[in-house]
């Protein structure tokens, strides 16, 4: 499969899927049009996608999404409880999270995940891309938050997107 004809093999089915969802139909014509768009758009926007995206373990990726989805639901419940509880009792903190990830996509996915999950918002990526500043809504123990982010989200992302 030549890389010039199909520069981003993952983008094509994704765009086609989004096209079908937008149209809310799976008529053969729409599938054909979606595939065509999914093939042409990455070709024409090649310059926006400098790094090749490689996914090592698709199943681990799916599991990761499952975990994140579950955490989003619990995060919502937890944050709702915190808001309804006494705001004076909250212990907000800034936490510096040292990163083991290198690729841009993996870092942005991690930052995104952090924002969606329990009481944390990613605030700033340092200039050298080695630390991510995270704000936690209620963190009596910042080290525990750091450890849970690293083991729960960063480790699977590292396995999926990075070789070592």
């Amino acid at each position: 499969m030549s890389l010039r004809l199909l520069p981003h093999p993952l983008l094509t089915p994704m765009l086609a899927g989004i096209w079908l969802l937008l149209n809310n139909s799976i008529a053969p014509g729409q599938i054909l049009l979606g595939t065509l768009l999914g093939w042409l758009i990455p070709l024409f926007t090649l310059r926006f996608w400098p790094e090749a995206i490689r996914i090592r373990h698709p199943w681990r990726m799916l599991r990761f999404f499952g975990v994140v989805l579950f955490d989003i639901v619990t995060a919502n419940l937890v944050v709702a409880m915190r808001i309804l509880g006494r705001p004076e009792n909250l212990r907000p903190a800034f936490i510096e999270l040292p990163l083991d990830l290198h690729s841009d996509l993996a870092i942005s996915l991690l930052a995104n995940t952090i924002c969606l999950t329990p009481g944390t918002v990613s605030a700033q990526l340092s200039q050298d891309r080695r630390t991510l500043l995270v704000h936690a809504l209620d963190a009596p123990d910042p080290e525990a938050v750091k450890a849970s982010i690293k083991s729960r989200y960063e480790a699977p992302l590292k396995e999926v997107f990075e070789t070592c």
Binding site: I72, V73, G119
Partner: peptide, 14 residues
């Protein structure tokens, strides 16, 4: 900073 948490989390489930 804490106010930021409300709209980003609780609303996604909503």
């Amino acid at each position: 900073y804490t106010r930021l948490h409300g709209p980003t989390k609780a609303t996604t489930l909503g």
